[in-house]
């Protein structure tokens, strides 16, 4: 599969003010202000559900921006069982529809496998490794979206907003065609599990 991909080694490093995770409330208006979409962008994709983990501040910020762009946001606490049992399983049986999220590995691992059974696939996947003074992003997705990955590096504390923008640009169901990396200079507290932003969509 990797031979089909066009690797873009972006490696953008951008400076940003250190950001304390505990200062979520103060950060939200700033992140929201930075979320204003540039002009001449195609309309954001509206997802059936955007999955966020309410234990993770970055995930909540991502969800806030996705909600502003028109998607319905569903909060979990790491476990997708209820979402699957009471909602997605029936919905995907009726009609496979696209979902997105920013979560830890576990929810995506489960949802991807459940999606396979409905002829769906992950069309965008970005791993965000939270190091002490930066976020390392490795993104695979549609080529047009990958070209915007440098925006992640320059976004500073608003990188989740940029991740939401990338996700909202994934309009089709083709497999990821390109890969890129970026680095955002922001401070984080504690040793954290990597986060993933992702899109699962019906196969094109």
């Amino acid at each position: 599969m990797s031979s089909r991909r066009h690797f873009l080694q972006v490696g953008i490093t951008a400076s940003a003010l250190p950001f304390a995770l505990t200062n979520l409330q103060a950060a939200l208006p700033q992140a929201s202000a930075e979320a204003a979409a540039p002009v001449n962008e195609p309309a954001a994709r509206i997802f059936y559900k955007v999955i966020v983990d309410e234990r993770i501040p970055e995930s909540l910020r991502f969800g806030q921006h996705m909600r502003e762009m028109g998607s319905d946001v569903h909060a979990i606490r790491g476990d997708i069982t209820d979402l699957w049992f009471h909602d997605l399983s029936a919905q995907w049986k009726r009609e496979p529809v696209a979902i997105a999220g920013l979560t830890e590995h576990g929810p995506l691992f489960c949802l991807e496998r459940l999606a396979w059974d409905h002829r769906m696939r992950v069309v965008f996947r970005a791993e965000h490794r939270l190091d002490a003074d930066c976020v390392l992003h490795e993104v695979s997705g549609p080529e047009a979206v990958i070209q915007r990955v440098p925006d992640l590096g320059s976004a500073g504390v608003a990188w989740t907003t940029q991740a939401a923008r990338l996700v909202s640009r994934c309009h089709d169901g083709r497999p990821p065609a390109a890969v890129a990396r970026a680095v955002t200079r922001v401070a984080h507290s504690g040793d954290r599990e990597p986060l993933l932003s992702w899109v699962i969509a019906p196969r094109a």
Partner: peptide, 20 residues
């Protein structure tokens, strides 16, 4: 009650740094 909760439990440790 069927559950997938086990996948939400962080399993990272010194001896298993990449539980995924």
């Amino acid at each position: 009650i069927p559950s997938l909760e086990t996948f939400s439990i962080g399993a990272r440790s010194e001896t298993n740094p990449t539980p995924s």
